[in-house]
């Protein structure tokens, strides 16, 4: 899928590797997890907790909680507040946070 957002050419930051549902993704250093997901071109829609409908981040500033993802095994993290780190493992959430995550 073509991403809705693209990096401007002036952005020359180095990249790093993260894994999204096991798939390798190049992210820019300094990006938040949500920004990296939206720029990846992957289908990164989560399923909502109540009716399971697809959602993507809405506010990108820590207010709406639409960006919830599992990061390195911990569920319900606000992807828009957390910067990417090398080797980070991101899982798209399907419904509610699972017990133990």
């Amino acid at each position: 899928m073509t991403p809705m957002f693209s990096h401007i050419p002036a952005d020359q930051r180095p990249t790093l590797e993260i894994f999204v549902d096991g798939q390798s993704v190049r992210a820019r250093r300094g990006d938040t997890v949500s920004a990296a997901l939206l720029a990846s071109g992957l289908d990164v829609r989560r399923d909502s907790a109540v009716s399971g409908v697809p959602r993507l981040p809405y506010c990108m500033m820590g207010v709406c909680f639409e960006c919830l993802v599992t990061i390195d095994g911990v569920g319900n993290r606000q992807g828009c507040l957390i910067p990417v780190a090398p080797g980070m493992r991101v899982e798209i959430q399907r419904g509610k946070r699972e017990l133990g995550k």
Partner: peptide, 25 residues
């Protein structure tokens, strides 16, 4: 307004300022 692809203008500005990401579609 809950459909993926609907965001706040502030969200787009955040992506622009912190990640150099602009709408391309």
């Amino acid at each position: 307004w809950t459909l993926p692809g609907v965001m706040t203008a502030g969200a787009a500005q955040t992506m622009l300022k912190s990640s150099g990401l602009v709408p391309s579609e």
